[in-house]
Design a protein around this nucleic acid. Sequence first.
DNA 1: GTGAAAGCGCTAACAG
DNA 2: CTGTTAGCGCTTTCAC
Lengths: 353, 353
Amino acid sequence: MSKKQTTIQDIAKKLNITASTVSRAMNDHPKISKKTKALVWNTARELNYQPNTIASNLRKGKGNTVGMIVPRINRHFFSNVITGVESVLNPAGYNLIICQSEENYEKEVENVKTLISNRVSGILISLSIETQNIKHLQKIIKSHIPLVMFDRVNEKLNISQVINDDEAGSYEMAIHLLGQGIKDIMWMGGPRSSSIYRNRYNGYKRALEEHNIFAEEMPCFEGSPTLDSALNYMREFLKSGKCPKAIFCTSDYMAMGTIQALYEKGLNVPNDVAVTGYSNEPFAGLISPKLTTVEQFSEEMGRATARLLLDQLLSESDEPVPRKIIIKPKLIVRETTQKRKKNNKFIKNKQEL
Amino acid sequence: MSKKQTTIQDIAKKLNITASTVSRAMNDHPKISKKTKALVWNTARELNYQPNTIASNLRKGKGNTVGMIVPRINRHFFSNVITGVESVLNPAGYNLIICQSEENYEKEVENVKTLISNRVSGILISLSIETQNIKHLQKIIKSHIPLVMFDRVNEKLNISQVINDDEAGSYEMAIHLLGQGIKDIMWMGGPRSSSIYRNRYNGYKRALEEHNIFAEEMPCFEGSPTLDSALNYMREFLKSGKCPKAIFCTSDYMAMGTIQALYEKGLNVPNDVAVTGYSNEPFAGLISPKLTTVEQFSEEMGRATARLLLDQLLSESDEPVPRKIIIKPKLIVRETTQKRKKNNKFIKNKQEL
DNA sequence: GTGAAAGCGCTAACAG
DNA sequence: CTGTTAGCGCTTTCAC
């Protein structure tokens, strides 16, 4: 048993025909006789032949893998986008190479380099929070590799992209809060250097301004969108003794940290303070009280992103028209933003302490 | 601007040297003069040259990608394993092609085929729940592609693997429950055709038997480890009017479904019924009451799996000694399995209704 | 219908 | 130090 894989040469030799014939037979070429094909297929099975896609691609000058760069794979949002992407790309015959930037600009640049070197047929990217400089993206374009951005995009770059209407999602959330009669809404968001957080802030600001409230005058924290970051900040913040009537968190994890800090101070959610999340993480509907948040349709975003790429992959033109798809998010009002009254449905479903 | 990527030929031509020299210069070969190297590197940058790893690999007869097959990427457990794998493989110069079997045997076989065809240097796999037949795995071995199984393994196959000590984790959990004075512990598990659920059942059984209780006599549900599956079953089950004092769920999601069904019946967790999870999903510590569960150290599992593969990749021998790494899980006792008393610490941290 | 020959982009003997 | 040559495994004209 040799260490090497069988090649079409091996099959050819065994059958006393040429490699070209074997190649054609394997690809079910019409001009090969049924007999030869059967012969080839049989010995292929016999010798445990596996076509070498790599060699084939090299020869044909095209590939079957697509590269995808995400900040982190173990974020529910991104792993769902990936699922959506694969559901479109796999049936079309493409494999995914997934890279994680870990929210780090240098890593992202590195990822781009490896993907180009691996001659992927296309690249899908959601930018790291750090990313400002987009030379690496321009390099992709210069290399004529179709590129589609999703979720966290760079707005200066005129290429296909799929984004959530974060401005609208955030606006609706703020309107919902204002509709509860709340006038002081603290902002607790991710860094506005990133498009998504900037847009969410803008939506919040717009809603407030429509009610003659100025976002700039609200308490505001901007930091890493994690539980700990929110928890630490809020612990400090609450020492001052005052607390807004609502806290608008741009991530469900920040909401969790915020809620925890509030509990530690003996404050009740939602009766003392309303808290929102964003993203609808799996736990949002499982915790108590259930978290009001925004559903982003991540899998749909993945499918849309993949479809935009496929369009480019299949189109002959080298300069495809950039398309922009905006996915409407959906406000999910649950318990953390609605004051409870005795005997309502919400209380009935809860266990007593 | 041409559509093709620049090659070493282009650089060679421009500098009036040969491709081999360029190749050597690019690889920082010691016998190339500093001057030539500088020349090559500069024109490389100038022409926006990106090495073609594919061609290089074909020539060298080895690759830099590793294939990984998981049931689902958007499961916290698996996406964490992937993170662990990448943290070891990327620094070693490997990329990951990730495939999802979606718990489907045929898809898994398909995945194996594409990975072999893409000449990956190694394959990491966690079997789908359906997988019984292992011909496709034997094909990998026959193709001399290093293979490492993790988490859901096939015990008949004597190859390297990384597993959790599910038997022990489950045993400890059952002992914990028994220690609370509970004697009727319902089993709510995933299908025992899968190694992990089989082992968990065995641990539970052993613990019970040590207390002269027979697992066979306990109520038992075996089904898809999802929230809905547990919810639907429990709704039916509870119609009978009787309910065990504890329910041992082998997944945090099943626990959520179970708890929901219990609430619907007006039963309190943990005071009426203790409920366990398994896996320590991110929400386990966030819900109320907090879920007692088992931490699996998924990222560590990923790292260990990747290391086993690297060993084989780096070792010269074609028949490496199969190694088996067993990761000890950790019981995390939280609130769903401990009866509450007035004024204990646990209550203090809770908000009042 | 099938074979011969060339080449995708790169590397590695073997020369010199 | 650098050039020559051959070839990784496959496809694809161009022949016959």
